[in-house]
């Protein structure tokens, strides 16, 4: 089941149930039940079930929703990879400058902003989804301010020898990706209709897991490669 292909009411239902902690199978079942009922009755989903949010609130789930803290803790590989990414970029700068690796105050602030935004989005997913444009604007401004802090506040917060920082960055960057590649496919939980086979979605899950797991490490390597190319070109 492709949520993007559904009409707005159904998309809102998918999101509302996801936010409530429903599994992909539960969501697919709920969507199909509404479609079936409306096909029989000739009603619109809103006429028969109220708003998508009201219906999602009324449906009991097999498992209670995960808390914000648990969701964020479960994302630990992403947090480590993010740290690794920043450290790897700092290592590249240090290698170029032939100095120790210095993490600036601005970088620390930028990391804190990213974590705060992630916590805010996860904690307030309902309002975030209902006010998507406003959320996008707030996130963009906050992200831009964080980026501005990183660019302008260059004084060192702490420094590490390159021989220590580089292996640490590699472990932080690639370790979570290797871990996630093994474990994310089983955690991947797509929206599945009652007549869909698990095999298709598991293949999609493995592909999505590989893509997501390597997004940050590969992105970091690409950024470093671009920076190295630009540095090389600027010297000649």
């Amino acid at each position: 089941m492709k949520p993007d292909a559904l009409s707005p009411w159904y998309r809102d239902l998918v999101v509302a149930l996801r936010m409530k902690g429903a599994s992909g199978r539960e969501i697919g079942d709920a969507v199909a039940a509404v479609q079936s009922h409306c096909a029989d009755s000739g009603d619109t989903p809103e006429e028969a079930f109220g708003t998508a949010q009201q219906y999602a609130d009324a449906l009991p789930l097999a498992e209670p929703a995960e808390s914000t803290v648990r969701l964020l803790v479960r994302a630990w590989p992403t947090w480590l990879a993010l740290l690794g990414s920043f450290l790897a970029l700092a290592c590249y700068d240090a290698w170029q400058a032939k100095t120790a690796v210095s993490v600036s105050v601005g970088t620390v602030i930028f990391l804190v902003v990213i974590v705060a935004l992630a916590v805010g989005v996860v904690r307030f997913m309902g309002p975030v989804w209902r006010h998507r444009v406003l959320t996008w604007a707030v996130l963009s401004i906050a992200f831009a301010l964080g980026l501005l802090a990183q660019v302008t506040l260059r004084q060192s917060a702490f420094s590490l020898p390159l021989a220590v920082a580089a292996p640490l960055a590699a472990v932080l960057l690639f370790g979570p990706a290797l871990y996630e590649q093994r474990h994310l496919a089983t955690a991947y939980d797509p929206v599945e209709g009652p007549f869909e086979t698990r095999a298709g979605s598991e293949r999609a899950g493995r592909r999505a897991a590989q893509f997501l797991a390597w997004l940050l490490p590969v992105g970091t390597v690409v950024v470093i490669a671009i920076a190295a190319t630009l540095d090389h070109l600027s010297r000649h």
Binding site: A30, A33, V34, H37, C38, S41, D43, A48, F49, G50, Q54, Y55, A58, L59, P60, A62
Partner: peptide
């Protein structure tokens, strides 16, 4: 009986 009342009830019975 609206679907919004019926299906949650059926789901509770199923659980």
């Amino acid at each position: 009986i609206k679907g919004g009342s019926l299906y949650p009830l059926l789901q509770r019975l199923e659980q």
